[in-house]
Design a protein around this nucleic acid. Structure first.
Lengths: 350, 350
DNA sequence: TTGTAGGCGTTATCAC
DNA sequence: GTGATAACGCCTACAA
């Protein structure tokens, strides 16, 4: 590899001068600078960031620790991070915990067990050490699902940002706005004339499910629509439970005219259950999703849903990193980014 | 940050000794080694890979340049790479070209234009430089779609592996097997009793489309089934064209009993077209997909399709990197990993 | 305006 | 077995 020394030799100057022009110090005569830059081009010199970091004791690499890169949300979040880092000539160091595989591997259904038995913490520590060893200047942790992960990460002396998950009080967390997103859905259903609006919720120990449920209830209340407990059903974010719960809903003496499903996948199960029971969507029953996963456009009918600002979550997290690094930290610890509404054809006016 | 020097001081030995125990040299007295390790623990010492790389002139970071991390294939491939790197204590440096955004941004529909006008090459060079600057020890390039990208990358003096894309002759490329995958589908259709098998192909300038088309024709020939040119239709991998072409197929005087779509998304369009024209899948017409994107399980009916070995492509690419780095390069340049068959409910026996 | 030299945290080569 | 010390490539005083 060609070094600053080779450049200096070719340009007929000293290494100090080369360093100065490379770092845009303006105490170099333009003529000398030009000669140096020519040598750089000619030799195809690429600065050794390694050596630079060692000297300056700060690196230009941000560590990204992702719980599972295969989660539907992860790649878009990472994309948002990369975009910001690119534009600042920072580099991304990626570590993947593969938590979904771990969950399968160790068989407990929930993260909780994994956390309690220590396997998860071990994996995290080992990844963190690798990242630390590479001297990352900041860490962004990306959850596979928005939940409280406080207590998972060891104390670090670099800035840490939680993206798509929650830390303890005082930690800097960037998330989408569950409450506002759910309100988008419920309000829309109401404005389309629905008052009998059922809910297929995620499990109650899930943070997003709690927030969206709260939003569902408060929004109905806001519009003076009574809340029927039998309209509120619980799934596990998956297809099968949603299918089953939807059938329970249909069989109610006073069945709903619209079903708000807290995930698109559950909405698929709902639509299937409806179709299997001779009901057409949206003519007979309206269905509203949440997540806007890619396939929802292809569903029959195309699913009306709520889009998560995933790219923005990642991008904002990265921006936050640089804010802190540059000491402009305005201490806005908890950032909530609004969702947007994707209107397609699964909801009818009543 | 605590250094090797601090450890040495606490353990009452020299830095050289600490370095030796850290690098598992066995010329250190076990007793001394123990003392050192205790100091490491106590001080929470994390080795500075940066400094180590500078000295040894080799890094433990593999660069991953991905055309678009949001492509459906990318995250699983990256996961496969990460898994291998993790187990060897290597670290992944990720750069994302965001090519799909670029294509939108600069409006040409195909990569070709982007390549020709130089925008793409600029982006690549700038990313490569950032990676090089971080002194990656090898590069894995991940395509957004399997195509020939030779001429895109500058000449590098580190090992380069092409994953999910093709380089020039002599380059090391890791891909799934298009021919074998398509054969899986066509052969299955035949064995279910179909002989009138139509094809919705991808565009002919696409490498996978060419290979799968070849496979389609050769497999039919192998089973002595005549090839009807009017059964071969061309889409653009997307929903709409597939929908339209399927209608053309239905209106043929002798319509097919099965349709092999070269992508799952196109299969969705096919199913919709069939349904809209009063045909049931699979009772009236069988539909076979290709890709096994996540949503295909949720389709109605769940789609029978071909699964791409994406994780294995990434994992093999990473393994190849280490083979080369360790000079065991067996010079197997072109690696093709077989697809697997996912049988669900969109194909009927005849 | 430019050159020189010390040191960032390691490893490796010698002595001892 | 262990300890001193010279690099690795770069930046930054400080000297010239």
């Amino acid at each position: 590899m060609v070094t600053i020394r080779d450049v200096a030799r070719l340009a007929g100057v000293s290494v100090g001068t080369v360093s100065n022009v490379l770092n845009k110090s303006n105490k170099v005569k333009p003529e000398t600078a030009k000669r140096v830059m020519e040598a750089v081009k000619e030799l195809n010199y690429v600065p050794n960031t390694i050596a630079k970091s060692l000297k300056t004791n700060k690196s230009n690499v941000v560590g990204v620790l992702v719980e599972d890169i295969c989660a539907f949300s992860s790649s878009t979040i990472i994309d948002g991070i990369c975009a910001e880092c690119d534009s600042r000539e920072y580099v991304v160091n990626l570590a993947n915990l593969r938590i979904n595989t771990m969950v399968n591997h160790f068989s407990p259904k929930t993260y909780q067990t994994l956390v309690e038995n220590g396997h998860f913490k071990n994996a995290v520590n080992s990844s963190i050490n690798a990242l630390l060893s590479a001297r990352i200047c900041a860490l962004i942790y990306i959850g596979a699902h928005p939940r409280d992960i406080s207590g998972i990460l060891p104390k670090l002396n670099i800035p840490v940002i939680y993206a798509y998950c929650y830390g303890k009080n005082g930690d800097c967390c960037v998330n989408y706005d569950d409450f506002q997103g759910a309100k988008l859905a419920v309000e829309y259903l109401i404005k389309q004339g629905h008052t009998k609006i059922a809910l297929i919720s995620g499990p109650l120990d899930s943070v997003p499910a709690q927030k969206r449920l709260k939003s569902y209830k408060e929004t109905l209340k806001e519009y003076n629509i009574p809340i029927y407990e039998e309209y509120i059903r619980y799934g596990d974010w998956g297809y099968d439970y949603a299918y089953r719960e939807c059938i329970n809903l249909i069989n109610l003496p006073n069945p709903p005219s619209a079903i708000f499903s807290m995930s698109d996948v559950m909405a698929y199960g709902v639509i299937k259950a409806l179709n299997d029971n001779g009901k057409k969507v949206p003519q007979d029953v309206s269905v509203h999703g949440f997540d806007n996963i890619e396939s929802s456009w292809y569903m029959n009918p195309p699913l009306t849903t709520v889009k998560l600002p995933l790219w923005e979550v990642g991008n904002t997290a990265a921006k936050k990193v640089f804010e802190i690094l540059e000491n402009q930290g305005q201490n806005q610890k908890d950032i909530l980014i609004p969702c947007t509404h994707i209107i397609r054809n699964s909801v009818n006016k009543i």
